[in-house]
């Protein structure tokens, strides 16, 4: 585990704030794992609840920095903004799906589609923002992310001009707003 240089070093070498953050992320992981256990098992015997609690404790203890690696102060804000981002994304997916459905049933489809690869560069820094943008692009039909590297360079395969033209605009702005980064 990487210990940040600033902050007052305790006896075991970990600053208090880092320790608190890692405990918080441990707690969130534990609650998430336990909820998943309850939904998957569906029974409320004391024995099964104990088994679930113990196993989610071990999973959360060893892998807490896998799911929520950085617990910055504004993490809850990002989460709620992400929830607000979801309905727009789902509406966009449905809208673009009907476009793709129209393409698939069109009798002269090969004249309508025009597959090509476009490249554009963004200024997104954090990995999770880049991953979210890449997955959003892939989920929106008509465009598939081919490569997305950590510098923010995206290569996207688009199926026709219309879905290619709409690309780096609104979605990038929304994702950048969710994760609090400038474009």
């Amino acid at each position: 585990m990487i210990v940040s240089g600033n902050g007052i070093a305790k006896n075991d070498g970990k600053p208090t704030s880092t320790r608190f953050k890692s405990f918080f992320s441990f707690l969130v992981t534990f609650v998430l794992m336990f909820l998943t256990w309850i939904v998957l098992s569906g029974k409320f015997d004391p024995l099964l609840l104990w088994l679930g609690g113990i196993s989610s404790f071990f999973v959360a203890y060893y892998f807490y920095d896998l799911l929520f690696p950085v617990m910055e102060s504004g993490y809850g804000k990002v989460f709620f903004r992400f929830i607000g981002y979801m309905p727009w994304l789902i509406w966009e997916i449905i809208k673009a799906n009907f476009h793709l459905l129209y393409l698939a049933f069109h009798p002269r489809m090969k004249e309508l589609i025009d597959p090509h690869i476009i490249t554009f560069k963004t200024n997104l820094k954090s990995d999770i923002a880049i991953t979210t943008l890449a997955n959003s692009i892939t989920l929106t039909p008509g465009t598939i992310t081919v490569t997305a590297d950590s510098d923010g360079v995206f290569r996207v395969h688009a199926i026709d001009r219309e879905s290619a033209d709409a690309l780096p605009g609104t979605m990038l702005k929304k994702v950048a707003k969710v994760f609090g980064e400038e474009i």
């Binding site: 793709l100 459905l101 698939a104 039909p141 008509g142 598939i144």
Partner: peptide, 20 residues
Amino acid sequence: AVGIIRMPDFYSRLHPAGKL
């Protein structure tokens, strides 16, 4: 299913297969 059958190459076949 129709898109998977009709599309010309496999990159464009992925669009209907993955999303629809």
